[in-house]
């Protein structure tokens, strides 16, 4: 089950992000499905799975983004790892407790982009226009997905 799920995420998520998700954008902002996937895989599957999935999705995302460097690869790998560590030590999680986790991870990812120079010469404008709306969007979508997945994966505590 796990290899198929991971392969499906790697093969399908970035194309969905680059094409279909455009229709779900609010004021030009789309949820970052790769960030959400890396976080949830880390949370349910452990730090190693999270880091690897994050790195793969981030790498793929970098290939189809106009940004220079490998910001997504590094940021998503670190986020997947962090989500895995948090998931390991969080005894009892609910969609509400996942809220600060996803919000924090999305904000960290945004800050990584700002540090990489994605904000141009007006970082405050980028925070207001991209970082914060995306963090809220990621959190809401992530909470919804967590709610859907929690019953399936949390019972046996694994992605097997």
């Amino acid at each position: 089950m796990k290899p198929f799920l991971y392969a499906g995420l790697v093969m399908g998520l970035v194309p969905v992000q680059a094409t279909v998700l455009e229709h779900l954008s609010v004021a030009g902002i789309r949820p970052d499905l790769c960030l959400i996937a890396a976080s949830l895989v880390g949370y349910f599957g452990g730090p190693v799975d999270g880091a690897l999935m994050g790195a793969l999705l981030g790498f793929e995302q970098d290939l189809f983004s106009a940004g220079e460097g490998w910001t997504n690869l590094i940021a998503k790998a670190v986020l997947g790892l962090a989500a895995g560590v948090v998931g390991r030590y969080l005894a009892r999680a609910t969609p509400v407790t996942v809220l600060p986790l996803l919000l924090g991870l999305s904000v960290c990812s945004g800050l990584a982009f700002l540090m990489a120079g994605a904000g141009g010469d007006n970082a405050l404008d980028a925070v207001r226009s991209v970082l914060l709306p995306q963090a809220v969007f990621d959190t809401l979508v992530g909470m919804g997905l967590y709610w859907l997945l929690a019953e399936r994966f949390r019972k046996d505590d694994s992605l097997e």
């Binding site: 970052d32 290939l63 982009f113």
Partner: peptide, 14 residues
């Protein structure tokens, strides 16, 4: 044009 930039940080097309 087959897609948009995979992140929100850049205005790009594929």
């Amino acid at each position: 044009v087959v897609g948009r930039d995979a992140t929100n940080w850049y205005h790009g097309v594929v």
